[in-house]
Design a protein around this nucleic acid. Sequence first.
DNA 1: TCAGCGAATGCGACTCATTCGCAATATCGC
DNA 2: GCGATATTGCGAATGAGTCGCATTCGCTGA
Lengths: 160, 160
Amino acid sequence: MTGQGRHLIERAGERDRVADALASLGGATTGPRRAIVEALVSADRLQTPEQLLAEARVAAPSTSLATVYRTLERLDLGGHLKRMELASGAVGYAYCGGSHHDHAICTRCGRVIRVDACAASAWEAPAGFRVTSHELNFYGTCEACAADATADAMPARGAA
Amino acid sequence: MTGQGRHLIERAGERDRVADALASLGGATTGPRRAIVEALVSADRLQTPEQLLAEARVAAPSTSLATVYRTLERLDLGGHLKRMELASGAVGYAYCGGSHHDHAICTRCGRVIRVDACAASAWEAPAGFRVTSHELNFYGTCEACAADATADAMPARGAA
DNA sequence: TCAGCGAATGCGACTCATTCGCAATATCGC
DNA sequence: GCGATATTGCGAATGAGTCGCATTCGCTGA
């Protein structure tokens, strides 16, 4: 878990994503909240509440686990969160925008990649079933992991 | 939970599905195992471990919750199980065959319908991402629930 | 810039789903 | 039918996640 260089990386729009996430929380922007949201957004991959707590405490040392859960709950309500069981049995959380999209999840590093090209309308639903929404996850290996073999967080329960 | 009439219903292949599930457990066919598997197969919808226990105890009164979990674990290892969080926060399990297929899940009754027409190869994965598997869930209302409005088990966390 | 209000936080206790260990029991091959 | 072995039931243990409440913090209006 070498998150050292993380704060040096400033992907385009990361600042905006943090702002959006904080706005979606709908309340005061406190130190712990900002720290948790930044940990979520900058990692861009599935992390356990414990990992998020550790990361958040770098910026806001007083942060507690209860606050991590409360913040995750709020983000989840707004549909901004991807929640998935890891191979370890633990549960991982990753930030994702609010609008509908699908996901590609790297089974090696837990990275969550947004897939906007949604062909949902073309899919074949069973007769008599009225579809109101769907969820599509791709599992595989991301570009970075295809070369580098540093595995740490592996989502479990892929396709059935 | 009025499962009274359930045992009267004998859908085509239900007997085979029970046999397949028992075989996939790979061991002795005991009373509790058979009862649990029959409860899973005949219900054909998401059920909590507690519900499965109650149902299994009709046929095998001594069945314990630990055995329900152990049986579910084995089925899951073989990929024969669909596991999903319900709106109540509880976790529901449903039996599904071993081969790959997707699912349509009724958000009213929890019914899980197998979707064999898988158009996965036509979907667009992100550049640089090597897809090894996928999972597609449709959420909506099944034919029965479209008419009848008896809601009891509602899966949560639909599409993000 | 500062005071006041209401929301957010931290702590620690608590709940409850799930797992574990072990003695008793049932199943299957012979 | 018998014995070896896997499975079961029980009850305790575990651990993630939640809750209540006193304290603290951030935002708003003066």
